[in-house]
Structures are given as structure tokens and as C-alpha cells.
Amino acid sequence: MEWFDDQPLRPRPHIAVLFYDALGDFVIITPLLRGLKEKYPDCTLDYFSGERTRELEEALPYIDARFSVFGNPNALTELPAFLAERRAVAGEYDLAINCDFHPTMAFVAHMLQPRYVVGKCFAADLREEVPRAPGKRHQLHDEFWSAPDLLQRYGDILNSTYIGEIWCRLAFVETDFYRTEVPTEDPACDIPEVLISTGGRRPAKLWSRDYWKQVIDWCFGHGYRVGLLGDKPQRQSAVYHTGDTESWLLEQTPLIDLRGRFSLPQAAGALARAKACVSVDNGIMHIAYSVRTPTIALFGASPWMVWTPPVPHLHLVLPDEPCSKCYENRFRNAACLLPRHQCMLSVRPARVIERLQAVLRS
């Protein structure tokens, strides 16, 4: 195994991409998956991720085979047989691109035994990682991608600080970095004009329920129905930290409860039918802009400059009173680090409504 520095691959290369199974992670890596198929038209592409994004992985045409590492209790015992099957189909792995920082994925990359590797991969002795090739491009692996001067220092390599572009550059892939893709299915029901999503895996990202109510009231007052997307209610509350916010909104407003009704491709299909989506930084937001629905994204406690592509139908609403605490902590904190949730409280509903009104009128 050695570091990939754009060495030529064999005519029908066997390629693996590894990434965590968060919805946003899947969405931002789709340009890389497509770009690999464009660069190596006859390649076989295997994807290693997890159960959360399984439905999307199985429906995406660029993926030839997939395996759940996360959410699969038997992953490491089942993996050798899966790899043997894949090698029988497509030969040894020529290239593994590990886009994840979890040590489990570094071990999985090692088990693939690829000829070349990008990203974390344990070396033969399992003590160290495969050493990186020299060169400025490869130094990006050590950078904090949210650093405000990143583009200034790497402008000869990057056009933006969008993570989807960064991973393509690290893998020497040229494509439309900002065109993400999500497979869609018919949701098989009527879809409200506006869809919202309130939950997230970091409570620091969340918006005030009173603010949400003002947006919902404005929509219904102007003839726009609003639907609530998310996981099943109990999981939405426990895993996505919504607490009693969503149940309170359903009691206080005519909000239509669509949580837990759709598969992920159907949720994408529902978003594609909506006139607009309003969401905090979460997987629904990423799916919404991927299906080209006008998306109003409420950002405060997460690095928008890394996680949002520069596309015209994605409208960011940023804090009037930003705080540097999450940045200083490299966004590792789950909850807000201040007594008052300053950044998200300064994303005021009047600004969101103004942006939403403009989107709906257009």
C-alpha cells in the first residue's frame, strides 16, 4: 500500500470509498463518487458506510456494491467474506479513498489492502498509518478546513472551502464539485408547499421553538401549508435533540406532521415537490438543496463555509451576533458553550421570513 499521487490505475480499476453514514456526509461525497466514474468509466466502485444511509447508497447509480460498517454489530466478522466476493468480481482493490476520521475506517481501509490509498489507512504493522506522499495538496489532510485563511493559502489548489470539492481535490478528481445528487422516489402523498426540519445531532445547531412558530404562522397566514420532516417522533426527540419542540409546534400551529412517513428517497422526492425548505444544518438541508429545492439554511454553530456548496438555490441565514466559541473548540462541542445561545438566537425569524417570502414569490 502506498499513498495515491494520481498514479495511473489499471484499465478496469476496483475502487473503494469509505465514509461515515450521516446524511450530510453521503450528500457531500456524491460529487466524488460521480467524478470517479467520470475519470475511470470502467471502474467498479464499492462504498463502505453504514445503515443510516443504506437506502440512498442502494439507489445511487454510481455505487456498484455497498457494505455497512456502522450500525452493523457483525461488520468486522462479515467484512472478510464481503471482500472476498468483491475481489472475485473485480479483482484486488486499486484505490481506497477514506473520507472518514474514525479509527474503525482506518482499519477497514487496511483490510481492503489497496494498491493506493487516500486518507487514513493503517499500514502493514497496524501501528502507523500509510505515510503520505510529499506535496502541498496532501498537506490539506492536516489542515483545519474551517480556518478563515484556508482558501488564501490553498487558492492554487482549491476554488472554495466546500468539503465536497476538498475531497475531490485530494483524490485528483475533476467534476462539478458543487452538484450533489440524491436518488428520489415518489412520496405517494400530497406535499405541503413548505417543508421544515428542526432537529440535529448537535444541540448547538438548533433554533428556538418560538422562532419556528413565527415562521409557521406566517406561512399559514399567507396560504402556504407547512410540513414537518424528520425521523419517528421518539427518535427525533432523543437522537436529534428536539425535545418537546416539535410536539409543542404541532399543538400550537396547523403544522402537518410528516415525520417517519418516508424512506430517505421518498423524503428526497417530497422535498423535490416542495416550493421551499427551511432547515437548520442537518441532513434534510443537504437533501433539499441536492434536489434543487430552494433551501433556507439556518447556520450559527457549525462551519457553513465547509458544509454548503455555492449554489444559487441554497440561501444561508447567518447570525447577527456570531460567537467564536464553537470555532475555537473546532465544533467538537455538542451544546452551546455560552449561558445564552447567542448565535442561533440572533438568526431572527423576521430575516428568515423575508428570505422565504422572496423565494416563494419567485
Rank of each mutant, 00 (worst) to 15 (best):
residue 290 S to V: 02
residue 98 N to V: 02
residue 37 K to I: 00
residue 47 Y to G: 01
residue 252 Q to D: 15
residue 234 Q to A: 15
residue 190 D to E: 13
residue 118 V to C: 13
residue 240 Y to V: 00
residue 182 V to E: 11
residue 78 E to I: 08
residue 146 S to T: 12
residue 277 C to S: 05
residue 69 V to G: 01
residue 146 S to Y: 11
residue 326 C to V: 08
residue 96 A to W: 02
residue 86 R to G: 09
residue 187 P to N: 04
residue 142 D to E: 07
residue 361 R to G: 15
residue 136 K to Q: 13
residue 244 D to P: 08
residue 47 Y to A: 10
residue 207 W to L: 05
residue 286 H to L: 13
residue 260 G to Y: 09
residue 68 S to F: 14
residue 165 E to W: 04
residue 240 Y to T: 00
residue 267 A to S: 15
residue 248 W to D: 03
residue 213 K to Y: 06
residue 50 G to N: 11
residue 201 R to H: 07
residue 191 I to A: 08
residue 41 P to R: 05
residue 284 I to V: 13
residue 305 M to N: 14
residue 26 F to W: 00
residue 312 P to H: 14
residue 200 G to V: 09
residue 94 D to G: 06
residue 137 R to V: 13
residue 231 D to R: 14
residue 340 R to G: 00
residue 1 M to F: 10
residue 260 G to M: 07
residue 291 V to H: 06
residue 48 F to T: 02
residue 126 L to E: 01
residue 220 F to W: 11
residue 187 P to W: 09
residue 165 E to D: 09
residue 247 S to Y: 04
residue 73 P to K: 02
residue 245 T to R: 05
residue 313 H to N: 11
residue 263 S to Y: 13
residue 27 V to L: 09
residue 21 D to C: 04
residue 339 P to K: 15
residue 192 P to S: 13
residue 214 Q to M: 11
residue 186 D to R: 09
residue 144 F to M: 09
residue 286 H to G: 02
residue 294 P to G: 15
residue 313 H to K: 02
residue 89 V to E: 15
residue 340 R to M: 09
residue 340 R to N: 03
residue 221 G to Q: 05
residue 314 L to K: 00
residue 144 F to Q: 11
residue 25 D to W: 00
residue 29 I to K: 10
residue 198 T to K: 07
residue 233 P to V: 07
residue 242 T to M: 04
residue 246 E to T: 15
residue 167 W to A: 02
residue 3 W to Q: 05
residue 250 L to Y: 03
residue 236 Q to V: 05
residue 312 P to W: 10
residue 56 L to V: 03
residue 301 A to C: 15
residue 259 R to P: 01
residue 159 N to V: 15
residue 278 V to R: 01
residue 135 G to S: 10
residue 1 M to A: 06
residue 338 L to N: 10
residue 190 D to W: 10
residue 148 P to E: 11
residue 298 L to P: 01
residue 266 Q to S: 11
residue 43 C to S: 04
residue 253 T to P: 08
residue 163 I to A: 06
residue 305 M to L: 13
residue 275 K to P: 01
residue 287 I to S: 02
residue 276 A to L: 10
residue 154 Y to K: 05
residue 87 R to K: 11
residue 208 S to T: 14
residue 259 R to H: 07
residue 168 C to Y: 05
residue 162 Y to W: 01
residue 295 T to A: 03
residue 236 Q to I: 11
residue 87 R to I: 05
residue 292 R to Q: 09
residue 160 S to N: 07
residue 300 G to V: 06
residue 304 W to P: 02
residue 287 I to R: 01
residue 20 Y to C: 10
residue 88 A to W: 13
residue 26 F to L: 04
residue 229 L to M: 08
residue 352 V to S: 12
residue 75 A to S: 14
residue 183 P to C: 04
residue 188 A to R: 12
residue 267 A to I: 08
